[in-house]
């Protein structure tokens, strides 16, 4: 499958990544090779098979809906890039 720099730009945007023109060209070339590897899957007959999302097929455990975590807001915000009055700061979203 042929992958263009525009395809790469589209995927990069979905992944919230920003690539330079040179990076996009290189990525397009690598992508084609990787997709060729991945596309080998298509030769396998899997019509009768259920997808396997997890090797150990068990259901997720349920527990009582009670608070188990302690409030560690201050501790957790100490490592944040930008905080004020207990809030995470980001650039203005609404004018």
């Amino acid at each position: 499958m042929s992958i263009s720099a525009d395809d790469i730009a589209y995927i990069a945007n979905l992944a919230r990544l920003q690539l330079s023109e040179a990076e996009k060209q290189k990525a397009a070339h690598n992508f084609e090779n990787i997709l060729a590897l991945i596309d080998q899957m298509q030769s396998a007959d899997t019509d009768q098979l259920e997808p396997l999302s997890h090797a150990i097929e068990t259901s997720q455990p349920l527990r009582e809906d009670i608070v188990t975590e302690q409030n560690q807001r201050d501790e957790l915000q100490k490592i944040a890039p930008k905080c004020e009055k207990g809030l995470y700061l980001v650039p203005k979203v609404l004018e």
């Binding site: 899957m41 899997t46 396997l52 090797a55």
Partner: peptide
């Protein structure tokens, strides 16, 4: 891609 890969995963298992 994704569903196909998961079916292959079952084949391998």
């Amino acid at each position: 891609y994704y569903i196909k890969a998961q079916k292959i995963r079952r084949l391998i298992k």
